[in-house]
């Protein structure tokens, strides 16, 4: 990469990935600056989620390179646990630790990964609970929270590690429509605070409003990329136009 001039926060360089014989990602390249919100859109099976999981190496790539803050994070010599301290992830189905309260969910990483003591971790958990507006639910178990509340705890859990980059894998897809707003509000707030976010979502209003760049993926390839106004209002590719038209109609 070009160390001499500018380091991106995230640089994905000609990444390919396949499950067995099926090619999931073909030669994907893009980059993000600090504070960027990049939204990945595309039909189901286009490789969006896989792309996300390659960044924190829950999925391994076949070829190409990924750099975080100028450092290569792909390759066998990289400590994935160190990498994952820097990259937070929010899941479609929340995946909160079911046996822990909201507060304990947030504390686990700071305590067991960052080595904070109980008091410090608790303080950090309280701050992040407040940030997502769930201070009263601190001692509730995931089973006692609504989907929207669970997802906000999920976001707080990832943020408590103080990552450089946040990955969102369809964070509102498993939510009832009336609960989507509260999660998007937290994400919007996070973007305003300057967090770098890579987001897979079907929430087009969020993309249009918050994204600094949108990538349209289809068949494991980037079909088109650009600022949201370009993709929504004057797309260069027919596939982009028809996909975005369909998805926007569906959600309005």
């Amino acid at each position: 990469m070009s160390d001499n001039e500018h380091t991106y926060l995230l640089e994905v360089d000609r990444v390919s990935q396949s499950y067995g014989t099926e090619k999931v990602l073909r030669d994907i390249s893009f980059e993000m600056d600090r504070g960027d919100v990049t939204v990945l859109v595309g039909p189901s099976g286009s490789g969006k989620s896989t792309m996300l999981r390659c960044v924190n190496r829950l999925t391994e790539i076949d070829s190409g390179n990924i750099y975080l803050d100028g450092e290569r994070i792909t390759g066998p010599d990289v400590d994935v646990n160190e990498l994952r301290k820097e990259v937070g992830m929010v899941f479609q189905d929340f995946n909160l630790f079911a046996h822990l309260t909201a507060r304990q969910n947030i504390m686990l990483g700071p305590r067991r990964v960052l080595g904070l003591d109980k008091e410090e971790a608790g303080k950090r958990a309280d701050e992040h609970l407040e940030m997502v507006g769930l201070t009263p639910q601190a001692d509730s178990y995931p089973g006692e929270l609504s989907g929207g509340q669970q997802q906000r705890v999920g976001i707080a859990r990832a943020l408590a590690m103080e990552p450089k980059l946040m990955l969102f894998d369809e964070p509102t897809s498993a939510l009832d429509p009336e609960l989507i707003g509260e999660v998007l509000e937290v994400m919007r707030d996070l973007a305003d605070r300057g967090m770098t976010m890579l987001v897979v979502t079907h929430e087009m209003s969020f993309a249009r409003e918050v994204a600094s760049e949108m990538l349209f993926l289809d068949g494991g390839k980037i079909v088109e990329r650009g600022p949201p106004e370009q993709l929504f209002d004057r797309p260069e590719e027919d596939r982009t136009a028809s996909f975005l038209r369909r998805i926007t109609e569906m959600h309005s």
Partner: peptide
């Protein structure tokens, strides 16, 4: 997966 994603071994 969620445990691994926050950096737990």
């Amino acid at each position: 997966t969620a445990g691994r994603a926050i950096g737990l071994s």
